[in-house]
Simulated assay, not measured.
Amino acid sequence: MTFNPLEQRGIPLDRQLRNWRELNVEPIDPDHADPYTRCRIITMNGIEVEAILFSHQMARHCPDPEIKRQLAHVRYIEAQRQKAVNWLLPGVSSVLETTIAYEQVAVDLTAWVARTEPDPYLKQAYQFGVLEDFDHLYRYADLYEMIEHRKAESIVDRLTEVMPGRPTPMHHRHPVDNVRDPYDRTRTDPLSKLHALTIMSAEQQTMNFYMYVGPTYMEPIARQLCQEIGLIEEEHVTHYESLVDPGETLWEQLVNHECYLYHSFVEQESDPRVKALWELHLNMELEHLHIACELMRRHDGREPQEVLAPELPNVLTFEPNKQYLRELIAEQLDLTTLGAGYVREAHERFERMQQEIHGGEPAPSDRVLQRQHDEVGREYRVETEGEHPVPRLRERV
C-alpha cells in the first residue's frame, strides 16, 4: 500500500501532550511477546533518541529564538514518545537479556537494509557491519549461558541464528579506517538516505547503551566484554554516520527524520496494544513532518518534494535473514577496511592497531569463549535445523 506522508494530516501539535496516566504504558511480557515486537521497540527508541539529539544540536546552532521555541515544543513531544516506547521494555529482563535483544536488532535490521539497499557502495557498508554485530550476539550468548545459565534461544526464539561472525577481536581498526565515503545527496535514492539514518540511529543507541550499562555488571568478565564491544560500537557509529552527505542542510535532515519507521511498524506489528501506540505516534509524526516542511520552505528556500520520495518506500521489515547471513559469512568474513574501502589482507595500520589495543593478550571477547569452553566444554550455538552449517572461522594470522 502506497503512503505519501505529505498528503496526510496528523494530530495538531497542541493536542499531542500526554498526561502521566497516558504515559504509563504496560510493558510487554518477555516470555510471550513476539521477539520482533521487542526489536521494533528497541529500534523505535533509537529513532526517537536520534530525533531528540538532532533537535538539540540544531537548536544549539540556531540564532533565531522563534525557531528554538518551535524545536523545543516538538522535542518535548518526542521526549514523551521516547519514554512511552522505551518503557514498553519489561523491567524483569536482566541487563544481559536486553543486551542480547539489542544485538538481535542490529543483526536483523542491518541485514534487511543490506538486502534492500539499491546503492552497491552503501550495501557493502551494511554487509560489512552486520557480520560484526552477528559475532557480538554470539559472544553475549556465551556470556549469558555462563553467567545466568540460560540460553539465548529463549530471547531470539530461533528467528536469528547465534553462531560466529567476523571474530570480535578483529573489529578493532585504526580510527581513520572507519570513515567511509558519503553518498551524494543530489543523486542518491531517497531510500538510501532513510537506510543510512536508520542504521546510524540504531548503532548510536547501542553505543550509548553500552556506555551506560557497562559498569552496572558485577561480573568482571561481563564488564570487560561490554567495554570491548562498546568501543566497537563507537567504530560502527563512525562507519555509518560518515555515509551521510555532509552537504545536507539541517532543514533537509529534519524532514528526513520523520515518519518512515512508525509507518513501517504500523504495517507489520503483531501486538494490537503496541500497534495502537505506533499508530498514535505516526499521527503525531505526520504533524511534525508538516512543521519541518514549513521550516524548510521558510529558511532553506526549497520545497520538501525536492528531497523526499513521492511516497514512502516498502516498509522496513523485521524477518529472519539466516541464509543471507550465511552467504555473507562464506564470502566476506575476512574483510577489513583500508581508507574508505575494503580489503581482504591485513595491512600495516590494522596490524599496528591490533598490537596496541590487545597488547599481546587475549581480548575479553576471546576470554569469554575460553571460559565457556573450560566451564561447559563447548561454545553456545543456535542454528536452524535442516540448513547447512556455516564454515568454521579462520582466524587471521
Rank of each mutant, 00 (worst) to 15 (best):
96 L>N: 04
58 M>N: 01
87 W>H: 15
124 Q>F: 08
52 I>L: 04
58 M>P: 00
83 K>H: 14
60 R>Q: 12
63 P>D: 13
81 R>L: 06
86 N>A: 14
103 E>K: 09
79 A>G: 11
110 T>W: 03
88 L>Q: 14
51 A>D: 00
100 I>V: 14
87 W>V: 02
46 G>V: 00
111 A>M: 08
73 H>T: 13
101 A>Y: 03
68 K>C: 13
104 Q>H: 13
125 A>Y: 05
123 K>L: 03
74 V>Q: 08
93 S>P: 00
103 E>G: 01
115 R>M: 15
122 L>F: 06
70 Q>G: 08
72 A>H: 10
66 E>M: 14
120 P>M: 06
107 V>Y: 00
114 A>H: 04
114 A>G: 03
65 P>R: 08
73 H>E: 14
61 H>Y: 09
116 T>I: 12
77 I>T: 08
95 V>K: 15
123 K>M: 09
70 Q>V: 13
99 T>Q: 01
63 P>H: 08
98 T>F: 02
102 Y>P: 00
60 R>C: 06
66 E>G: 05
125 A>M: 11
89 L>R: 12
75 R>F: 01
111 A>V: 02
85 V>I: 15
90 P>K: 13
86 N>L: 13
54 F>W: 05
124 Q>A: 10
48 E>A: 10
81 R>N: 14
117 E>H: 11
56 H>Y: 10
79 A>S: 14
46 G>S: 05
58 M>Q: 07
85 V>Q: 03
92 V>H: 12
71 L>V: 06
109 L>T: 05
111 A>P: 10
66 E>C: 07
117 E>C: 15
69 R>A: 15
103 E>D: 01
61 H>K: 13
49 V>Y: 00
72 A>C: 01
79 A>I: 01
125 A>P: 00
114 A>C: 03
50 E>M: 12
121 Y>W: 07
102 Y>W: 14
116 T>L: 12
90 P>A: 09
65 P>Y: 07
76 Y>F: 11
87 W>T: 12
53 L>M: 09
91 G>Y: 04
72 A>G: 06
109 L>D: 03
110 T>D: 04
51 A>P: 03
61 H>P: 01
113 V>N: 04
108 D>G: 00
123 K>D: 03
124 Q>N: 12
101 A>G: 05
